[in-house]
Amino acid sequence: MSEPTPALQTPSQTVGPFYGYALPYAGGPELVPGHHPRAIRFHGTVTDGAGEPILDALLEIWQADENGALMRELGSLDRDGFTFTGFGRCATTIAGHYTFTTLKPGAAGAAAPYILVTVFARGVTHHLFTRAYFAEDAALHASDAVLRSLPADRRDTLICVSEGVVGGSDSYRFDIRVQGENETVFLDFDA
């Protein structure tokens, strides 16, 4: 066996418009069932630089559980209705809207709790990463490395709007503006 040799990364290409029969799967948006006693609704609209909804976006979320633990459980693709895996996938509707049913994450490590959100779409040549934080964790936001580094108006694009209890569950709205006014902050981890 030869030693591993460093190699340059394979570039990204757009997900294109025709993934709809391939990537979404049954249960993808439901990290927990809607009747879970602590289920939250995590939803929003994805818009482009003209303010128009992006109706062919694909979103993935990845997050810690309520205690801040990252899961190693199998079953994200074939959910059993009981095992929380922390991963979800949802295609936007023709209104550009997405809805996940999940748990509010606890803090994992030094950062304030957040849901990692990944956006794929036709026209997006390389996926976009962002984080959805929660307004009620404001005390922790002051020491969060990302939030602290941003001017206030841009920081607010990373914080969910708390909508109170809707249909028996706490509801959080996280709109994603890919371009333009109030453009969402997107993150580059290849520092």
Partner: peptide
């Protein structure tokens, strides 16, 4: 109309980004 006009914000990944779902 589908690219951000701001520079991406460079950040150090936290534990959430340093692990991946298991399949």
């Amino acid at each position: 109309l589908r690219h951000p006009t701001h520079e991406l914000v460079r950040v150090d990944p936290e534990e959430v980004e340093r692990v991946s779902p298991a399949f």
